[in-house]
Design a protein around this nucleic acid. Structure first.
Length: 150
DNA sequence: GCCAACGTTGGC
DNA sequence: GCCAACGTTGGC
């Protein structure tokens, strides 16, 4: 089993939205590295740290779990969607997504500033300068460590 | 709102 | 294939 961190702006979709919906499609990722992770590496049952970006504070807001493996992001085919991309077609999809289900909402946000201060997480991708990847691998040790910080 | 870091595009 | 210009991300 692998562990992941997925970023979302809470003004777009928050842990509260995921709790309400139970599960959601992770559409709109338009970065090849993140796409490849969703297409090739994520498996049903993998745990996910749900991260609020561009938030106050930014940080880990809860936990989700992959409940459907990579499949074409059909929002890219919808001309009316903000995620429309004319290069992607049903015959040759360019972008992929997964589905994520709700597991738990933390009683508080584990802020990025706390993650940065913790020596045990110094290698975690999200604390590195300029880290923009919205779908990231985390180690099992990092995942468990974050859970203990709640 | 600012701006640094990064990814992508496109001219050459 | 290089690299400047541009657009986006996301912390602050």
């Amino acid at each position: 089993m692998k562990y992941w961190l997925m970023k979302c702006e809470p003004s777009v979709y928050s842990i509260d939205d995921l709790e309400r919906d139970g599960a959601t499609q992770w559409e709109g990722v338009r970065n090849y590295q993140a796409r490849n992770i969703m297409r090739d590496d994520m498996r049903v049952g993998d745990p996910v740290l749900f991260y609020h970006s561009n938030a106050d504070p930014s940080g880990v807001a809860g936990v989700g779990r992959i409940c459907r493996e990579g499949y074409p992001d059909h929002f890219a085919w919808n001309r009316k969607s903000r995620y429309f991309d004319e290069r992607s077609t049903p015959e040759k999809p360019v972008w992929m997504m997964v589905d994520v289900e709700f597991v738990e909402k933390f009683p508080r946000i584990v802020a990025l500033a706390e993650l940065k201060q913790d020596a045990a997480l110094k290698d975690m991708m999200v604390v590195q300068k300029g880290s923009r990847l919205s779908v990231q691998p985390v180690t099992g040790a990092q995942f468990k460590h974050v859970l203990r910080m709640v």
